[in-house]
Nucleic acid binder design. Structure first.
Lengths: 124, 124
DNA sequence: TTAACTGTACTATTTGTAATAGTACGGTTA
DNA sequence: TAACCGTACTATTACAAATAGTACAGTTAA
Protein backbone atom coordinates (compact mmCIF):
# COMPACT_ATOMS: atom_id res chain seq x y z
CA UNK A 1 0.00 0.00 0.00
CA UNK A 2 2.88 2.35 0.76
CA UNK A 3 6.48 2.51 -0.38
CA UNK A 4 8.84 3.39 2.45
CA UNK A 5 12.57 3.81 2.00
CA UNK A 6 14.23 3.47 5.37
CA UNK A 7 17.57 4.49 3.85
CA UNK A 8 16.24 7.83 2.65
CA UNK A 9 17.26 11.06 4.29
CA UNK A 10 13.56 11.91 4.51
CA UNK A 11 12.17 10.58 7.82
CA UNK A 12 9.87 7.57 7.52
CA UNK A 13 6.96 9.35 9.16
CA UNK A 14 7.26 12.19 6.64
CA UNK A 15 7.30 9.73 3.74
CA UNK A 16 4.11 8.23 5.11
CA UNK A 17 2.51 11.66 5.51
CA UNK A 18 3.42 12.65 1.95
CA UNK A 19 2.03 9.47 0.44
CA UNK A 20 -1.24 9.63 2.32
CA UNK A 21 -1.65 13.31 1.47
CA UNK A 22 -1.02 12.54 -2.19
CA UNK A 23 -3.67 9.80 -2.21
CA UNK A 24 -6.09 12.25 -0.63
CA UNK A 25 -5.32 15.08 -3.06
CA UNK A 26 -5.67 12.82 -6.09
CA UNK A 27 -9.04 11.59 -4.89
CA UNK A 28 -8.06 7.98 -4.31
CA UNK A 29 -8.86 8.20 -0.61
CA UNK A 30 -12.30 9.71 -0.06
CA UNK A 31 -13.78 11.18 3.14
CA UNK A 32 -14.67 8.45 5.63
CA UNK A 33 -12.30 5.90 4.17
CA UNK A 34 -10.69 3.88 6.97
CA UNK A 35 -6.92 3.68 7.11
CA UNK A 36 -4.95 0.67 8.34
CA UNK A 37 -4.62 0.61 12.10
CA UNK A 38 -1.39 1.81 13.66
CA UNK A 39 -0.41 -1.71 14.65
CA UNK A 40 -1.37 -3.45 11.40
CA UNK A 41 0.43 -0.89 9.26
CA UNK A 42 3.36 -1.18 11.63
CA UNK A 43 3.71 -4.90 11.01
CA UNK A 44 2.92 -4.60 7.30
CA UNK A 45 5.69 -2.07 6.74
CA UNK A 46 8.02 -3.51 9.39
CA UNK A 47 8.15 -0.13 11.07
CA UNK A 48 7.79 0.72 14.74
CA UNK A 49 4.20 1.57 15.75
CA UNK A 50 5.41 4.81 17.31
CA UNK A 51 6.62 5.98 13.92
CA UNK A 52 3.23 5.24 12.37
CA UNK A 53 1.48 6.99 15.20
CA UNK A 54 3.64 10.07 14.75
CA UNK A 55 2.54 10.28 11.12
CA UNK A 56 -1.13 9.75 11.97
CA UNK A 57 -0.94 12.31 14.75
CA UNK A 58 0.48 14.89 12.36
CA UNK A 59 -2.16 14.06 9.75
CA UNK A 60 -4.84 14.64 12.40
CA UNK A 61 -3.34 18.04 13.18
CA UNK A 62 -3.33 18.91 9.48
CA UNK A 63 -6.99 18.04 9.05
CA UNK A 64 -6.36 15.02 6.83
CA UNK A 65 -7.29 12.26 9.25
CA UNK A 66 -9.84 11.92 12.00
CA UNK A 67 -8.71 9.30 14.49
CA UNK A 68 -11.07 7.87 17.10
CA UNK A 69 -9.73 5.78 20.01
CA UNK A 70 -11.18 2.29 19.80
CA UNK A 71 -12.49 2.72 16.27
CA UNK A 72 -9.63 3.66 13.99
CA UNK A 73 -8.36 6.38 11.69
CA UNK A 74 -10.48 7.75 8.86
CA UNK A 75 -10.07 10.32 6.11
CA UNK A 76 -11.48 13.58 7.43
CA UNK A 77 -15.06 14.31 6.35
CA UNK A 78 -14.36 17.86 5.28
CA UNK A 79 -11.16 17.25 3.38
CA UNK A 80 -11.84 20.04 0.90
CA UNK A 81 -10.44 22.65 3.24
CA UNK A 82 -7.14 20.77 3.31
CA UNK A 83 -7.15 20.35 -0.47
CA UNK A 84 -7.70 24.06 -1.05
CA UNK A 85 -4.94 25.06 1.37
CA UNK A 86 -2.51 22.51 -0.03
CA UNK A 87 -3.07 23.49 -3.63
CA UNK A 88 -2.64 27.15 -2.79
CA UNK A 89 0.62 26.37 -1.05
CA UNK A 90 1.83 24.38 -4.02
CA UNK A 91 1.04 27.25 -6.36
CA UNK A 92 3.07 29.59 -4.17
CA UNK A 93 6.00 27.19 -4.29
CA UNK A 94 5.62 26.97 -8.06
CA UNK A 95 5.80 30.75 -8.27
CA UNK A 96 9.00 30.72 -6.20
CA UNK A 97 10.50 28.14 -8.56
CA UNK A 98 9.53 30.26 -11.55
CA UNK A 99 11.18 33.30 -10.01
CA UNK A 100 14.35 31.30 -9.47
CA UNK A 101 14.34 30.13 -13.07
CA UNK A 102 13.87 33.62 -14.42
CA UNK A 103 16.63 34.89 -12.17
CA UNK A 104 18.88 32.16 -13.56
CA UNK A 105 18.25 33.39 -17.07
CA UNK A 106 15.81 30.72 -18.20
CA UNK A 107 13.43 32.11 -20.81
CA UNK A 108 9.65 31.90 -20.72
CA UNK A 109 9.80 29.94 -23.95
CA UNK A 110 11.50 27.04 -22.21
CA UNK A 111 8.75 26.76 -19.63
CA UNK A 112 5.52 27.08 -21.56
CA UNK A 113 6.04 23.82 -23.50
CA UNK A 114 6.31 21.95 -20.21
CA UNK A 115 2.85 23.10 -19.22
CA UNK A 116 1.43 22.13 -22.58
CA UNK A 117 3.00 18.70 -22.28
CA UNK A 118 1.76 18.09 -18.73
CA UNK A 119 -1.75 19.23 -19.56
CA UNK A 120 -2.21 17.12 -22.67
CA UNK A 121 -5.39 15.08 -22.61
CA UNK A 122 -3.67 11.72 -22.21
CA UNK A 123 -4.65 9.38 -19.47
CA UNK A 124 -2.65 9.72 -16.27
CA UNK B 1 26.99 38.58 2.88
CA UNK B 2 25.07 35.42 3.73
CA UNK B 3 21.99 34.73 5.81
CA UNK B 4 22.33 31.60 7.90
CA UNK B 5 19.59 30.27 10.16
CA UNK B 6 21.13 27.91 12.67
CA UNK B 7 17.65 26.95 13.92
CA UNK B 8 16.55 25.73 10.52
CA UNK B 9 16.12 22.05 9.82
CA UNK B 10 18.26 22.58 6.72
CA UNK B 11 21.93 22.02 7.64
CA UNK B 12 24.06 25.16 7.75
CA UNK B 13 26.47 23.87 5.11
CA UNK B 14 23.54 23.26 2.75
CA UNK B 15 22.22 26.76 3.32
CA UNK B 16 25.64 28.12 2.41
CA UNK B 17 25.81 25.96 -0.71
CA UNK B 18 22.37 27.09 -1.85
CA UNK B 19 23.12 30.77 -1.38
CA UNK B 20 26.44 30.65 -3.19
CA UNK B 21 24.91 28.65 -6.03
CA UNK B 22 22.12 31.20 -6.32
CA UNK B 23 24.59 34.09 -6.53
CA UNK B 24 26.44 32.21 -9.26
CA UNK B 25 23.32 31.36 -11.25
CA UNK B 26 22.06 34.93 -11.11
CA UNK B 27 25.39 36.24 -12.36
CA UNK B 28 26.32 38.17 -9.23
CA UNK B 29 29.44 36.03 -8.73
CA UNK B 30 31.45 35.80 -11.94
CA UNK B 31 34.20 33.32 -12.82
CA UNK B 32 37.42 34.08 -10.96
CA UNK B 33 35.71 36.01 -8.19
CA UNK B 34 37.41 35.24 -4.86
CA UNK B 35 35.27 34.01 -1.99
CA UNK B 36 35.90 34.77 1.68
CA UNK B 37 38.45 32.45 3.21
CA UNK B 38 37.21 29.55 5.29
CA UNK B 39 38.42 31.17 8.50
CA UNK B 40 37.22 34.70 7.81
CA UNK B 41 33.76 33.51 6.79
CA UNK B 42 33.76 31.29 9.84
CA UNK B 43 34.27 34.24 12.19
CA UNK B 44 31.97 36.52 10.18
CA UNK B 45 29.08 34.07 10.42
CA UNK B 46 30.01 32.71 13.87
CA UNK B 47 30.08 29.22 12.42
CA UNK B 48 32.68 26.52 12.87
CA UNK B 49 35.36 26.54 10.13
CA UNK B 50 34.76 22.85 9.51
CA UNK B 51 31.19 23.63 8.50
CA UNK B 52 32.36 26.26 6.02
CA UNK B 53 34.94 23.88 4.65
CA UNK B 54 32.34 21.20 4.17
CA UNK B 55 30.31 23.60 2.03
CA UNK B 56 33.34 24.74 0.01
CA UNK B 57 34.44 21.17 -0.51
CA UNK B 58 31.03 20.22 -1.88
CA UNK B 59 30.99 23.31 -4.13
CA UNK B 60 34.36 22.21 -5.52
CA UNK B 61 32.96 18.78 -6.26
CA UNK B 62 29.97 20.36 -8.03
CA UNK B 63 32.16 22.51 -10.24
CA UNK B 64 31.12 25.80 -8.69
CA UNK B 65 34.33 26.66 -6.84
CA UNK B 66 37.98 26.11 -7.56
CA UNK B 67 39.94 26.12 -4.30
CA UNK B 68 43.73 26.37 -4.27
CA UNK B 69 45.68 25.64 -1.08
CA UNK B 70 47.46 28.76 0.06
CA UNK B 71 45.59 31.06 -2.35
CA UNK B 72 41.93 30.76 -1.61
CA UNK B 73 38.60 29.78 -3.17
CA UNK B 74 37.40 31.23 -6.47
CA UNK B 75 34.36 30.90 -8.67
CA UNK B 76 35.13 28.24 -11.25
CA UNK B 77 36.29 29.58 -14.61
CA UNK B 78 33.98 27.39 -16.64
CA UNK B 79 30.85 27.87 -14.62
CA UNK B 80 28.58 27.59 -17.66
CA UNK B 81 28.56 23.82 -17.47
CA UNK B 82 27.21 24.01 -13.93
CA UNK B 83 24.61 26.60 -14.95
CA UNK B 84 23.32 24.48 -17.78
CA UNK B 85 23.06 21.35 -15.65
CA UNK B 86 21.40 23.23 -12.78
CA UNK B 87 18.80 24.89 -14.98
CA UNK B 88 17.97 21.60 -16.62
CA UNK B 89 17.50 20.00 -13.23
CA UNK B 90 15.26 22.84 -12.10
CA UNK B 91 13.11 22.45 -15.18
CA UNK B 92 12.70 18.75 -14.42
CA UNK B 93 11.62 19.58 -10.88
CA UNK B 94 9.20 22.14 -12.25
CA UNK B 95 7.68 19.48 -14.47
CA UNK B 96 7.25 17.20 -11.46
CA UNK B 97 5.49 19.98 -9.56
CA UNK B 98 3.20 20.61 -12.51
CA UNK B 99 2.30 16.93 -12.67
CA UNK B 100 1.45 17.00 -8.97
CA UNK B 101 -0.75 20.04 -9.43
CA UNK B 102 -2.60 18.47 -12.34
CA UNK B 103 -3.07 15.28 -10.37
CA UNK B 104 -4.53 17.36 -7.54
CA UNK B 105 -7.10 18.81 -9.89
CA UNK B 106 -5.55 22.23 -10.41
CA UNK B 107 -6.45 23.62 -13.82
CA UNK B 108 -4.03 24.96 -16.41
CA UNK B 109 -5.80 28.31 -16.18
CA UNK B 110 -4.61 28.76 -12.60
CA UNK B 111 -0.98 28.29 -13.58
CA UNK B 112 -0.55 30.33 -16.75
CA UNK B 113 -1.19 33.67 -15.01
CA UNK B 114 1.65 32.93 -12.62
CA UNK B 115 4.08 32.66 -15.49
CA UNK B 116 2.82 35.88 -17.03
CA UNK B 117 3.24 37.64 -13.70
CA UNK B 118 6.73 36.33 -13.08
CA UNK B 119 7.89 37.17 -16.59
CA UNK B 120 6.60 40.75 -16.65
CA UNK B 121 9.28 43.23 -17.68
CA UNK B 122 9.63 44.84 -14.25
CA UNK B 123 12.99 45.18 -12.61
CA UNK B 124 13.95 42.32 -10.34
C1' DT C 1 63.38 35.01 5.43
C1' DT C 2 59.58 35.44 8.20
C1' DA C 3 55.04 36.25 9.57
C1' DA C 4 50.47 35.86 8.32
C1' DC C 5 47.55 34.16 5.56
C1' DT C 6 45.37 30.20 2.56
C1' DG C 7 43.03 25.25 1.95
C1' DT C 8 43.03 20.66 3.73
C1' DA C 9 42.99 16.61 6.86
C1' DC C 10 42.17 14.36 10.98
C1' DT C 11 40.22 12.82 15.64
C1' DA C 12 37.18 13.55 19.43
C1' DT C 13 33.06 15.35 21.35
C1' DT C 14 28.48 17.33 21.78
C1' DT C 15 23.87 17.82 20.28
C1' DG C 16 19.42 17.02 18.21
C1' DT C 17 16.25 14.10 15.99
C1' DA C 18 14.57 9.86 14.07
C1' DA C 19 13.57 5.45 15.19
C1' DT C 20 13.12 1.56 18.19
C1' DA C 21 11.53 -1.00 22.35
C1' DG C 22 8.40 -1.81 25.87
C1' DT C 23 4.54 -0.85 28.82
C1' DA C 24 0.19 0.92 30.01
C1' DC C 25 -4.55 3.00 29.81
C1' DG C 26 -9.19 3.65 28.18
C1' DG C 27 -12.66 3.21 24.38
C1' DT C 28 -14.91 0.12 20.78
C1' DT C 29 -16.57 -4.01 18.66
C1' DA C 30 -18.07 -8.68 17.80
C1' DT D 1 -15.11 -11.33 27.49
C1' DA D 2 -11.55 -11.25 24.14
C1' DA D 3 -9.53 -8.81 20.58
C1' DC D 4 -8.98 -4.90 18.54
C1' DC D 5 -8.49 0.43 18.34
C1' DG D 6 -5.86 5.17 19.36
C1' DT D 7 -3.03 7.35 22.67
C1' DA D 8 0.59 8.38 26.12
C1' DC D 9 4.78 7.75 28.31
C1' DT D 10 9.77 6.58 29.42
C1' DA D 11 14.10 4.70 28.04
C1' DT D 12 17.31 3.52 24.63
C1' DT D 13 19.74 3.24 20.25
C1' DA D 14 21.48 5.16 15.93
C1' DC D 15 22.92 8.61 13.01
C1' DA D 16 24.21 13.07 11.10
C1' DA D 17 25.17 17.87 11.91
C1' DA D 18 27.94 20.80 14.19
C1' DT D 19 31.59 22.01 17.26
C1' DA D 20 36.39 21.96 19.12
C1' DG D 21 41.10 21.51 18.59
C1' DT D 22 45.29 20.38 16.28
C1' DA D 23 48.31 19.85 12.51
C1' DC D 24 50.43 20.21 7.82
C1' DA D 25 51.71 22.22 3.40
C1' DG D 26 51.36 25.98 -0.03
C1' DT D 27 51.12 31.18 -0.92
C1' DT D 28 51.84 35.96 -0.22
C1' DA D 29 53.73 40.21 1.19
C1' DA D 30 56.53 42.83 4.41
Amino acid sequence: MFQIDVMSRVPVYEQLISQIEKLVLSGVLLPGTPLPSVRSLSTALSINPNTIQKAYSELNARGVLSSVPGRGAFICENIDRFRREKNQKKLQELEASLLELRQSGVAKEEILPLISAVYKEDAL
